[in-house]
Design a protein around this nucleic acid. Structure first.
Length: 100
DNA sequence: CAACACAAAGTAG
DNA sequence: CTACTTTGTGTTG
């Protein structure tokens, strides 16, 4: 899975350029590392668009290919995942990876 | 085109 | 700590 292929698939799926950047950035988060919505948005080229980043991730078309579980709130909390507001599995997985 | 929605962040108290 | 304001983009009317 490389970045160009993902971008192409995302574009074919009808996502906007903003969502594509957000998703690609999220996918590039290294293992054992967490990123906040703010960091993702800023790295994608939209500093301050933390809420928009959350919207894009919530509509994540490829929840398997994109590690949304590494995306957390600025407080270090998990936020929500798979439509649930705080998955125990997510926290344990992050802890196992060494993110916490 | 306008108003509302969203998994946040920032500022004020 | 909590409450209010700001923020950028998507979705719906």
């Amino acid at each position: 899975m490389n970045r160009k292929l993902m971008a192409q698939r995302l574009e074919e799926r009808g996502l906007t350029n903003f969502q594509i950047k957000i998703l690609l950035t999220t996918m590039e988060i290294p293992k054992g590392r967490t990123a906040t919505y703010k960091e993702i948005a800023a790295r994608a080229g939209y500093p301050g668009a933390s809420r928009a980043a959350g919207t894009a991730l919530r509509k994540n078309p490829f929840p398997i290919a994109i590690p949304c579980h590494r995306v957390v709130k600025s407080s270090g909390e998990t936020g929500s995942y798979s439509g649930r507001s705080n998955s125990r599995i997510k926290k344990e997985l992050l802890k196992k990876e060494g993110a916490i």
